[in-house]
Design a protein around this nucleic acid. Sequence first.
RNA 1: GUGGUUUUAGCUCAGUCGGUUAGAGCGCCUGAUUGUGGUUCAGGAGGUCGUGGGUUCGAGCCCCAUAUUCCACCCCA
Length: 461
Amino acid sequence: MSNIKPSLAKGTRDFSPLEMIRRNYIFDTIKSVFKKYGYAEIQTPAMENLQTLTGKYGDEGDKLIFKILNSGDFLKEPKKKEFDFNAPENSNQLTPLISEKALRYDLTVPFARYVVMHQNEIALPFKRFQVQPVWRADRPQRGRYREFYQCDADVVGSDSLLNEAEFACIYHEALQKLGLRDFTIKLNNRKILSGIAELIGKPELIVDMTVAIDKLDKIGLDGVSKELVERGFTSADLEILKPVILLEGNNAEKLNSLSQVLAHSETGLKGIDELKRVLDYVEALNPGLTATMLQLDITLARGLNYYTGCIFEVKTNEVAMGSIGGGGRYDDLTGMFGLKGLTGVGISFGADRIYDVLEELGLFPETAMAGTRVLLTNFDAAAEAFALPLLSRLRDAGIAAELYPAAAKLKKQFSYADAKGIPYVVIVGGEELESGKPALKNMATGEQESLTIDLLIERLQ
RNA sequence: GUGGUUUUAGCUCAGUCGGUUAGAGCGCCUGAUUGUGGUUCAGGAGGUCGUGGGUUCGAGCCCCAUAUUCCACCCCA
């Protein structure tokens, strides 16, 4: 058997002990906020039936789903042998023949599947959170991985805009707790975007319109105009769009201008009303948030095509990074699984991007690795026999302790303690066996003293 | 999916015009110190130069293919 050079699959990463401490710090912080707002945790499988996932994320999204090859001799059946591999563009036809499972692409669609399957057990409104990895066959780059964790909170079965308002508060509270100070929670409403498309008389081009104006801060008005024309809008359309895109002022002022522009669009007005009520709720829950971090942004579109109402996106202003969170309301996600009339709204934190941001800003707390507190040295069989009961007593006292597993040179054992950052070493050798008093050495100060076992344990607590 | 970029010791990186035995720092191992880490000193090990082809008397260096890294698009957390 030839030796394979060890390597990671593209876009995936190992997490070492320090990284895990930091990652868990992020997960725990976000989870604690979710719990405080009444959300309960669930988990779903890493893989779903391919059918469950396809068609939910748009054409681009479908391409990014990792499919799992069927097991066994999956081309055995005669029907499959007739497949024409030479036909053009035939991958789409081949996929269902050789794959029926896929890795989940996000946590929202599996959650919708979960709600439908468990509808008889859950009480509505159902508030759940979920922290698990998702997979996307994207090309990796900064802040973009093929395997990454999402921290989702969703509520289904409640159309109250209080939910939206609370999500804004959750974003604020969790990110604040993680040490981020300058970030923006952007808020928009799909109904407003629909209203604008109606106004122009091209409701069928809403997706093209949103994709284009979403890029305003990136490519500017000229770039957006150019793209809109490419996507089928006329210069007359642009004249209508321009003042909407360039809307300025605070949230209330923007809403005022919009209600004039959209005065004849029922959908648009509904969107405006929804945003107003969300902002009022937030103002009552967290006064001041609406004036600073929560910003109405008409150009916010978001790609996922199942959103129908409010949409969120969170960006940090401290480092250059894509969005660190997003979400929105979807009125009929469970409808695709046969459960009609159930509305849902949810948000997601991108834990891996938050990690990169915290690292770049040096915001991880300095809490040392909660590793071993004391190492017992190992001289020989007699010393080991003496050390074993002491080891148990230390652990019973709740002290993380380990005995060096072989009678190696002391130099090696001390180097091990040093490399692992263990703050104390207990030396048990001939002298200590005679006196019955092990020596406790403080690795930071170099001080060393002989202590009775009781005193030693007391000292380490 | 499109365009560019990276890959040389465990890690971070030098390597001139294509020319003899591919280097440095850090880390690692050994000893100074057979009961003491982190500091110091002395010595040592460690390389199919991402992989596969090609050009050449000769390739780490040039050409082709492929993988990988990072970046910009597309899109997104």
